[in-house]
């Protein structure tokens, strides 16, 4: 029987960061996954737990603009960073182009994996304003069990379009 690794005792530490534009300072086990700080300490529940192994992407957030799977990101690494979750991407009144595209294509079914996909997509179109189908296949590797990939692909193209049109207008 394999011997399981045992966690070292938690070291409580103070961690300060900005989340969705707002400064926070939390006392927490520095090694604990940032996901649980976001969900259970800051009560931002839009970021989901799917596997805890960085395999499904449901917990994807942005750290300084980069897509990060927060179940595999120790809280201590958030120190001094700017974090964005689905709640900070946009809202019902002022949706992010990715959210707008998701609404137009009526993407979600159960909806559970969708925030992770939208965060990954927002990072993608930031880096690559006009992703090809192949770019989408290579970058968007989260898991959706309801099988909304078909609509998602359309929404990702649409999001890029929307983002490019707002950028060119401004």
């Amino acid at each position: 029987m394999a011997q399981l690794f045992q966690m070292k005792p938690p070291t409580k530490m103070n961690i300060s960061f900005k989340i969705n534009g707002k400064a926070h300072s939390v006392d927490t086990d520095g090694d604990a996954p940032l996901l649980w700080v976001i969900r259970d300490v800051l009560d931002l529940k839009g970021t989901k737990f799917g596997c805890g192994k960085a395999a499904c992407g449901a917990c994807t957030i942005h750290v300084d603009g980069e897509a990060v799977r927060s179940c595999s990101f120790a809280a201590k690494f958030a120190e001094g960073k700017e974090i964005t979750t689905i709640e900070g991407l946009g809202n019902a009144e002022n949706p992010h182009p990715v959210q707008q595209a998701w609404i137009e294509e009526i993407v979600p079914q159960c909806g559970y994996c969708q925030p992770g996909f939208m965060m990954a997509t927002a990072a993608l179109i930031d880096k690559n304003p006009s992703p090809t189908d192949e770019d989408i296949d290579d970058n968007i590797i989260n898991i959706c069990r309801c099988g909304t990939y078909y609509r998602m692909r359309k929404a990702i193209h649409r999001a890029a379009e929307l983002k490019n049109s707002t950028t060119s207008n401004s």
Partner: peptide, 21 residues
């Protein structure tokens, strides 16, 4: 890695014993 999903999407500066990444 790829533009949006790169190594650091999952791999950080040290091993993560919770995720096993």
């Amino acid at each position: 890695g790829m533009a949006a999903t790169n190594c650091n999407t999952c791999h950080q500066d040290e091993n993560n014993n919770y995720s096993g990444v």
